[in-house]
Amino acid sequence: MTAAWDGLGVEAVLLDADDTLYDTRTAMHRAGAAAATRVWPDADPERLAAAGVRFRDDPQGHFAAYTRGETDFAQMRRARLGELAVWLGQPDGEWSAPFDEAYEPAFLDALEAFDDVRPAVGALREQGVLVGVLTNSAGDYTQAKLVAAGLEDLFDVVCSRDTLGFGKPDARAFHEAARRLGADPSRTGYVGDELTTDPLGAVGAGMPAAWLVRDGEPGERERLLVAQHDVPVVRSLREIAGLRGV
Results as ranks from 00 to 15, higher is better:
Gln228Ile: 02
Ala85Lys: 15
Gly128Arg: 14
Val234Gln: 03
Leu243Lys: 09
Ala50Lys: 14
Asp230Arg: 15
Glu176Ile: 14
Cys159Trp: 11
His62Leu: 03
Leu224Asn: 03
Leu243Asp: 00
Ala85Val: 13
Thr71Leu: 10
Pro232Tyr: 12
Arg180Ala: 05
Ala65Asp: 05
Asp140Gly: 10
Ala36Phe: 05
Val158Glu: 03
Ala171Leu: 07
Val234Gly: 02
Tyr190Val: 08
Pro185Ile: 09
Leu48Tyr: 04
Ala123Met: 00
Val213Glu: 01
Ala4Tyr: 09
Ala65His: 11
Val157Gln: 06
Arg125Cys: 11
Pro59Glu: 10
Ala79Lys: 12
Gly189Gln: 08
Lys168Cys: 04
Asp230Val: 06
Val158Lys: 00
Ala4Gln: 02
Ala149Ser: 14
Ser160Ala: 02
Ala205His: 15
Ala97His: 06
Pro105His: 09
Glu46Ile: 11
Ala110Met: 10
Ser236Thr: 15
Tyr141Asp: 09
Phe174Ala: 00
Leu243Glu: 00
Ala50Cys: 04
Leu134Ser: 01
Asp58Ser: 03
Gly61Tyr: 13
Glu152Phe: 01
Met28Leu: 13
Met1Lys: 14
Pro41Arg: 10
Asp140Met: 09
Gly9Arg: 15
Asp18Ala: 11
Ala138Glu: 13
Ala144Cys: 05
Val53Ser: 03
Asp230Glu: 07
Glu46Asn: 11
Gly219Tyr: 15
Leu81Tyr: 01
Pro119Ala: 03
Pro218Gln: 06
Trp95Ala: 03
Glu112Met: 14
Gly93Ala: 03
Ala85Asn: 11
Leu154Ile: 08
Arg125Gln: 13
Tyr141Arg: 12
Lys145Cys: 10
Pro105Ile: 11
Tyr141Thr: 14
Ala171Thr: 15
Leu124Ser: 08
Thr37Tyr: 02
Glu112Ser: 10
Glu152Pro: 04
Thr188Arg: 13
Ala138Tyr: 13
Tyr103Pro: 01
Gly128Tyr: 15
Gly132Asn: 12
Asp57Pro: 06
Gly132Pro: 15
Arg56Gln: 14
Asp109Ile: 00
Ala138Phe: 09
Ala33His: 10
Arg54Pro: 05
Tyr66Arg: 10
Val157Lys: 09
Arg125Trp: 09
Ala50Thr: 07
Leu164His: 09
Leu181Trp: 15
